[in-house]
Design a binder for these strands. Structure first.
Lengths: 344, 344
DNA sequence: CTGTTAGCGCCTTCAA
DNA sequence: TTGAAGGCGCTAACAG
């Protein structure tokens, strides 16, 4: 890159000391207005910007955040859920003057990531997506007092900050909807059961059934992975039962899309033969073959709020654990069969 | 965060000078093996990692790259194309020891981004996705000699590095395929015509037609935006023609999916009434309602190679403009109708 | 092969 | 309100 100026040169051009330029840069009040003007003038003329590295070294802050994605699968970024989350996060970070670094750590690289990256402190705080029960990174982060916010409640850790939705209640409502439509044999494909969203949505499913005096049938509960292939495989297994379910609560839209493929392959129609309610309300839910009835969660807002929380904590230097809960809403479309009934 | 050690303290624990520790850290050859061992031992015991900011200040390198996304639409990250590209980029960056910063700059923020972010040099180089003809950032990058690689050839700039596919030839083959199937009235929905991929794919379409003695019908060429809604709208317009096309070359899978919605809404079947060949071969192409015949491009590899090129340039300090061309391949599925014919 | 010595560019006391 | 001076943690000559 071309030689860029230093604060020293700006100072001499503006005929003040480095300190004064620094004060102007950092919006210190104690600078005479006329001097400030002159300095700003020179800065603008010279197109000067202080070097991030020098600043970081001096004030111990990088003005950047890290978004840490799990990388169990090779396709995190292809998951629209993460994409939308990221959209929200990036928006806030930029608005509030933070850079954003991205990391996707493979399971076997976690130690390495911690040692080489995290301890070198290239960022002020981080946002973790989808915390797994036994995530090895969390204890290290806590020990080092690295500020972070989880984008989902951790299965049992509570002395951290997170942002969440009411997974259990939302799932319960989804299943109640199916019950109201007359279904009694309802299956579910859950999320990963080492995440709290996976467990909670399953529990909401169970609760709804029990409230209606319907027993839990273990063979109707299949653990999935939030991805289409998991939905496909799960549905296939359920279809092999002697008495397959007439309705499904599927813990993510993507899995529901996979499950619908399996149903179609088996010659079954949604919602006529099998009703479906899913979770997330991704754009794909609306455009699916059969538009999905699904629990809407404000994904972008979640990312947005998580980032706001983190930056607030950083700027106020107050890291007392906190959480925020976002609202959800059941969106009725075609896959549950409700429109069939009213239509009929 | 907890107080972390400095190189000085590691040095005194290992009973050597800072320089020696520094040499060990940077894998300098000139360190006695036994000393190196001792230092590494201490480093590992203390869980030490040099601070990124201090390093950057001293050696003028940040070890980080920026991925710069266009942000015309609010949904860059929802585009699987970018997601897959990013996957490849992140992989290489991590493997070669670089951090990755992410930016999505809104059109009206470009000046600001340049002034505040770029000039503060928080990264060593950047990868730009989808360069538009009149992108205001490019001239500034060139002026500042900021190392960068484009993930698509710029419409006319040639003294830069980029990675590309042969858009024209690929599009030509796609259209030839439709011609071979007997179609004579073939329409196209193009990409944005201020990008080179948009222009080149359209030109490939024209070339194929002309080679077969078919005149270009301007009413059959509609400019799109690579997104589903653009495909939907474009197809709708074409369907209003007195003599609609019997086949379509659509410059992206997402637009093809949108176009198929429009066709379905009009009661037309793919491929029976309207054959379609598209471009990209996203995962969605395989799983579409009617699986898409489409030009496969190695998206992840493109990201991978772009990053390799950039890092090579940085590490060899050789910034002579270069480009690399990746192969494409027409994947025949159902939407073109080829299988109908062989089946029949 | 190793230690000494200057910086890298900025922020921040401390005096004036 | 301003300037002088020291230091943030590391790298990179330069000596030895």
């Amino acid at each position: 890159m071309s030689q860029s100026l230093t604060i020293e040169e700006i100072a001499s051009l503006a005929q003040v000391s480095r300190s004064t330029v620094s004060r102007v840069l950092n919006e210190h009040p104690n600078v005479r207005a006329s001097v400030r003007e002159r300095v700003l003038q020179v800065i603008s003329e010279q197109n000067y910007a202080p070097r991030a590295a020098a600043r970081s070294l001096a004030n111990n802050r990088t003005q950047s955040l890290c978004f840490l994605f799990p990388n169990k699968t090779s396709s995190v970024f292809e998951d629209p859920f993460f994409a939308m989350l990221m959209q929200g996060m990036l928006e806030v970070a930029n608005r509030r003057g933070y850079f954003v670094m991205l990391s996707a750590v493979a399971p076997d690289m976690e130690q390495d990531f911690y040692r080489k990256v995290l301890r070198s402190r290239p960022f002020d705080g981080l946002i973790m997506l989808a915390s797994v029960e036994d995530d090895p990174l969390l204890p290290m982060l806590l020990r080092d007092r690295m500020p972070f916010v989880l984008c989902e409640r951790h299965p049992y850790l509570r002395n951290v900050s997170w942002i969440e939705i009411d997974n259990r209640e939302s799932a319960r409502e989804a299943v109640l909807h199916l019950l109201k439509l007359g279904h009694r044999r309802i299956g579910t494909i859950t999320g990963p059961l080492n995440t709290s969203s996976g467990v909670e949505r399953r529990d909401g499913y169970k609760q709804a059934l029990l409230e209606h005096g319907i027993g839990i049938a273990p063979e109707l509960i299949i653990e999935g992975d939030y991805h289409p292939d998991g939905g496909f495989a799960g549905m296939q297994r359920l279809l092999q039962l002697p008495d397959p379910p007439t309705a499904m609560f599927i813990a993510s839209d993507l899995m529901a899309i996979g499950a619908m493929r399996a149903l179609r392959a088996a010659g079954l129609r949604v919602p006529h033969d099998t009703a479906i309610v899913s979770f997330d309300d991704l754009p794909a839910a609306r455009f699916a073959d059969v538009p999905l009835t699904t629990v809407h969660q404000p994904i972008r807002d979640i990312g947005l709020n998580a980032t706001d929380i983190l930056i607030d904590q950083l700027e106020q230097q107050d890291f007392t654990p906190t959480f925020r809960r976002m609202p959800t809403k059941l969106i009725i479309r075609d896959s549950c069969g409700a429109s069939l009934r009213t239509g009929a």
